[in-house]
Amino acid sequence: MNKAVRSLYAAFLLLIAPMAIGGEVTVAVASNFIKPIEAVAPVFTKATGHRVRISTGSTGKFYAQIQRGAPFDVFLSADEARPARLEDEGFAVSGSRFIYAIGRLVLWQADAHHDIQPDVLRVAEGGRVAVANPVTAPYGTAAAATIEKLGLTAALGPRLVQGENIGQTFQFVATGNAAYGFVAWSQVSLNGTLIRGSGWLVPADMHPPIRQAATLLTHGADNSAARAFMAFLKSDAARQIIRQHGYDTE
C-alpha cells in the first residue's frame, strides 16, 4: 500500500470512528416540538455519543404508521392518549411513557406591537381565525375549549379555518391569510418572551392541559441509544431546554 492510500484509509477510519462508537435513535416527533427537539438532540449527542434521527409530523399520522411497523424507536406525541394506546396495543414498551412537556396556547397575530386581548375576537368582521383541527390535533382541541370558554363558539364558527396541524395553523397566520390564530406558545416565544408577532398567552386553566407524552416503542426496546434518549429527556438539562422553548414540565 502506498503512502497516499494509507493516509486516506486512516482519514476514513477517523471519520467513521464516532459513528462506530455511538448508537442511533430514530425519534418520531409531533410537529409542535420541532424547535426544542432540534435544541435537545445535539446536547444529547454530545453527552452520550449517540446520534438522533428526527422525523416530524402529526401525532395521528405517526400513530397509524407505528401501528403498521414504522421503524421509530421513540415517539414524542402531542397528546397522552395515543402513546397510552400504543402501549396497550403492544407497539410500545409498557410503562415507559412519561409527560415530557405541557404545551401552552397563544392567541397570535403576525404583526408585532399590538396589545392582544381575547376581545379582539369579539370584533365583527375581524377576519379569519385559524385553529388546528380540533378533532385530531391536541392544540386544536385546546383552542376549541378556549373559544367555548370565551363564549365565542357560535360567533366565531363561520370565521374559523383549520390547519392540518399546528405548523400549518401558524403558517396561515404568518402569511396574513388569517387575521388571528391559536398557535403553540413554543412557536412564537423563546425564554418566556414573544419573539415574533403579537400574542395573548391563554391562561392554562382555560382549556384541558396539553400533556405531551413520550413513549419507548417496541422497535427501540433493545436499542441502548433509545433508552438513553428517554432517560435524557427526563434530565434537568433537557427539561431546562424544553421550558426555554415555551413548555411547562412536570
Binding site: 400513530y63 397509524a64 378533532v135
Partner: peptide, 8 residues
C-alpha cells in the same frame, strides 16, 4: 379521508 385517518 385524511381527517378520518388522522382521527383513527
Amino acid at each position: 379521508i385524511y381527517d378520518h385517518v388522522e382521527a383513527l
